[in-house]
Design a protein around this nucleic acid. Sequence first.
DNA 1: CATGAATGAGCGTTCATTCAT
DNA 2: GATGAATGAACGCTCATTCAT
Lengths: 188, 188, 188, 188
Amino acid sequence: MARPKSDDKRSAIMVAAMRVIVKQGLSAPTAVIAKEAGVANGSLFTYFPTKADLFNQLYLELKLGMAAASLQEVPTNGSLREQFSKMWSNWMRWAMAEHDKRRALALLGVSDDITRETRMSAHQAMVHIAALMERSRANGPMRDAPLGLVGALMNSMAEATMDFMAQDPVNADAHSKVGFDALWRMLG
Amino acid sequence: MARPKSDDKRSAIMVAAMRVIVKQGLSAPTAVIAKEAGVANGSLFTYFPTKADLFNQLYLELKLGMAAASLQEVPTNGSLREQFSKMWSNWMRWAMAEHDKRRALALLGVSDDITRETRMSAHQAMVHIAALMERSRANGPMRDAPLGLVGALMNSMAEATMDFMAQDPVNADAHSKVGFDALWRMLG
Amino acid sequence: MARPKSDDKRSAIMVAAMRVIVKQGLSAPTAVIAKEAGVANGSLFTYFPTKADLFNQLYLELKLGMAAASLQEVPTNGSLREQFSKMWSNWMRWAMAEHDKRRALALLGVSDDITRETRMSAHQAMVHIAALMERSRANGPMRDAPLGLVGALMNSMAEATMDFMAQDPVNADAHSKVGFDALWRMLG
Amino acid sequence: MARPKSDDKRSAIMVAAMRVIVKQGLSAPTAVIAKEAGVANGSLFTYFPTKADLFNQLYLELKLGMAAASLQEVPTNGSLREQFSKMWSNWMRWAMAEHDKRRALALLGVSDDITRETRMSAHQAMVHIAALMERSRANGPMRDAPLGLVGALMNSMAEATMDFMAQDPVNADAHSKVGFDALWRMLG
DNA sequence: CATGAATGAGCGTTCATTCAT
DNA sequence: GATGAATGAACGCTCATTCAT
C-alpha cells in the first residue's frame, strides 16, 4: 500500500488543493494549498513529489468518487431505462452536492499536468457506467457507432447539463430531466 | 505618420500566439509568442496592452472564424435538416482543417483571462447558428426546454464529436455523421 | 546660437518636463513628457539627445530663472540689509508663485543625472546673490568662515523656509520674515 | 522551527542596501542588493515584502541610529549651550564616521517610496533633539516662531554643514564649529 | 524635421522545489 | 518526519532610444 506517512495529512492536502483550485485556479501556489491544509510549505512535498503529482492523484480520486456516487443504489433488476435514469440522477445530484469537487475536476481535466496514464486510470473507474451505456445503445440507432464516441457524447451532455443546473439551481431537477431525456432520445 | 501599426504584424502575433498556445499551453511566455511572430519582445505590447488582451482578442477572432466557416454556403431554401446538416458538416470540417485553431480555442475557453464581455461578444457571433438550432427544435420534444440548455447540449456534442474525429481522422466523416444523427435525434 | 529647430517645441518640452516631474517624479517616462508637450515620442530626442540632457538643461534654466527673479528690483542704493531683504523676499515670492518650478528644481537637484558641470554653471547664476551675501557677512562673525559654507547655510535656510511656507501658505509672509531674520542673525 | 529567519541576514540585506544605494542610487536593482548581501535574489523578499518596504525600514533604522548617536553622552547637568553643543558635535561626528549612512539617508529622504508613516516614526526618534532645540530658543528671538520652522531651519543647517565637512574633511572640526556657532546665533 | 512603431535590456516579484534545523 | 527559510529561474511589462516612413 503506497500510503506512507500520515493519511490524515495526505487527505487534508487533497481537500485543500480542491478548495484552493476552485477559488484560485490551477495556478494556485503550493504554498497556499499547504496553508489551507494546515501543514507547512515543504510538507506538501513529502506527500506528493511534485505539484503535478498532487494534481494527478486529486483528479483520480475525484473521478473515482464521482463514479462511485453515480452508481449508488442503481437497481440491478429494474429496466435498463430505470437503471440508466437512476445513474444519471445520481450523477447530477453529486454534481450539485459536490459543486467544488466538480469544478475542480473540470479544471483538472483540461490541465496539461494530468498525464495520459491518469486519464486512463480514471477511465477505468467509469467501466460500470460505460457498460450501462453500452447496453442502452445496443439495440438502438447507435449500435454501430464507436463506443468511445458514444461515451464521449454522453459525457459531454452530462457536463453541459451539470453546468446549466449549476447556473440555475432552482430548476435543477427539471434541467436534469431534460438532459436525461435528450440523452435517451439520442441513444434510442 | 511614421511606420503605421501593421495589420500584418498584428495578425502574425495572433497566429503565433495560437500556435504557441497549442504547443505550450496558456502559460506560454509572451517572449516565445513574440519570437514565433518574428517581432521583438516589447513589440507584442504595442499591439496588445497585456497578455490577457491578446488572449481575449484571439479568442474572439477564432470564434468568429469558426462561426463564419460554419455558415458558409448553408442553403437558405433547403429543408431545415439540410441547412442544419450543412452547418454541422462545415463546423466539423473547420475543426479538422483548423485543428490548431480549435485546440487554442478550447484552451482559451477555459482561461480565467477571457472576460465576460469577450464571451458575450463571441456568443453574438453564434446567433445564426443558434437561430438554426432554435428552429430545429421548435416542434420537437425539446420545444419547452430552456434554449440555453439546448444550445449547451448541442455545443458539447459538437465538441465531443470533433475531439473524436481528431483522434481518428481516417473515419472523420463517419464520426461526423454519427454526431449529427445523434444531435438530430435528440432534437427531435 | 545653439538653438536649432523650433524654439517653441524646445521650450514646450521643457515646460512639460517640469510639470510631469512634479506630478510623477524623475522617473516619469519621456513618452509622458512628450505627450504633455504635444510632440511625438521621438521628437523629444531631436531636441535633447538624452533624457539626462533634458534634465540638465531644465535644471539650469530653472535655476537661472530663480536667480533672475531673486534679483529683480533690488535697490542698488539702499542699505545692505534692505538689498538683502528685498532679494530674500523676491526669492520667497518666486518660490510661492512658481511652486512647480521649485518642486522640480528640488527633485532635479538630488538627481544623479545632473552633472557637476551643470551644477557649476548653475552656481554661476548665483554670483550676484553670493556677492550680496559676501558683503553681508564681511564684517560679522562669519567673516572668516569659508564662503562656500556660508552660502550653503544660506541656501539651506532658504529651502527650509520655502518648504515651510508651502505647507502653510496662509502665513507665508510671516514665515518668510522669520527665515530672513534668522539668516540675518546668523550673518550678524 | 526550521531555519529561523536570521537577524544576521536581515541586517546584511540592510547594510547591503545602504551601500548599494550610495553607489548606484535608489534605482539600484534588488538583485544587486541581494548579491551584495550574499543572499539569493528571492531571499530578499522573505525579509522584506517589497523593495519599498526595505527602503522604509532602512530609512527608519538609519534615522534612529543617527538620533541615538547624536544624544550619546549629552550632559544632563551642563548648560543648555553645552548640551546642545555636545549634541551637535555628536551629530556631525556621526555624519563623518558614517558617511555612507548619511548619503543613503539623504537619498531615501527624498524618495517617494518612504511613506508618511515612516517619516512620522522617524520624527518620533528626534523628539529629544527637538526638545533641546525647543529649550534653546525659548527665551530668544525665535520664541514666537513656529516650532516646525525652527526645527526645519536647524535641520537644514546641520545638513549643509555636514555636506561641507564631507567635501573638506581635513577641516571638518572647524566647519562643525562654524555651523554650530551660526545655529546658536540664529537661536539667539 | 516629425512621427510613432520597433527594439531589447532590464526590473520587481513569484513560486516550485530543496535543504538546514 | 515536520518545518519554513533559501534558492534562482522565469515572467509580464516598461521605457530610453533608434529608425523607417
